[in-house]
Amino acid sequence: MTPTKPPVALSIAGSDPSGGAGIQADLKTFAALGAYGTTVITALTAQSTRGVTGVHAVPVEFVDEQLRTLTEDVRIDAVKIGMLASAELVELVGSWLDRPPLARVPVVLDPVMVATAGSALLEPSAVTALRQILPKASLITPNLAEAAALLGVEPAGSVAEMRDQASALIAGGVNQVLLKGGHLTGFECVDVLADATGAWEIGSERISTTNTHGTGCTLSSAIAALRPQRESWLATVTDAKAWLTEALRGADRLEIGSGSGPVDHAHALRG
Rank of each mutant, 00 (worst) to 15 (best):
T2P: 14
T2I: 12
T2R: 13
P3Y: 10
K5F: 14
P6H: 14
S11V: 14
S11M: 01
I12N: 11
G14M: 05
D16V: 00
D16A: 00
D16T: 03
G20D: 06
A21W: 03
Q24N: 04
Q24W: 12
L27A: 06
K28E: 06
T29K: 12
T29F: 08
F30Q: 07
Y36V: 03
G37F: 13
T39Y: 04
T39N: 04
A43H: 13
L44W: 14
V52I: 07
V52T: 08
T53R: 14
V55S: 07
V55H: 12
H56Y: 13
V58G: 03
V60F: 05
E61C: 02
V63F: 07
E65M: 01
Q66N: 09
Q66S: 04
L67T: 02
R68L: 08
D73F: 06
V74P: 00
G82W: 06
M83Q: 00
E88D: 15
L89N: 13
V90I: 14
E91Q: 15
E91T: 14
L92H: 13
L102V: 04
P106C: 10
V107N: 02
L109G: 01
P111T: 05
V112S: 01
M113F: 00
V114P: 07
V114A: 03
G118K: 01
V127A: 11
A129V: 07
L134G: 09
A137T: 07
I140Y: 11
E146H: 07
A149G: 01
L151F: 04
E154K: 15
E154R: 15
P155D: 05
A156M: 06
E161M: 13
M162K: 05
A166V: 04
A166W: 02
S167V: 01
A168V: 02
L169P: 00
A171H: 13
G172N: 12
G172V: 11
V174L: 02
V174W: 09
L179S: 01
L179Q: 02
H183R: 10
L184M: 03
T185N: 14
G186K: 06
T197I: 01
G198E: 08
A199V: 04
W200Q: 11
I207W: 13
S208Y: 01
T209Y: 08
T212L: 14
T212F: 02
T215E: 06
S221Y: 09
S221M: 09
I223S: 00
I223C: 02
A224H: 00
A224R: 09
R230H: 09
W233G: 06
L234M: 10
L234T: 03
T236W: 12
T238P: 01
A240M: 07
K241I: 02
K241T: 06
K241V: 05
K241W: 11
T245D: 09
E246N: 10
G250P: 08
A251G: 11
R253I: 00
R253C: 03
L254R: 00
G259H: 08
G261V: 10
G261H: 09
V263Q: 07
H265Q: 06
A266G: 12
A268N: 01
G271T: 07
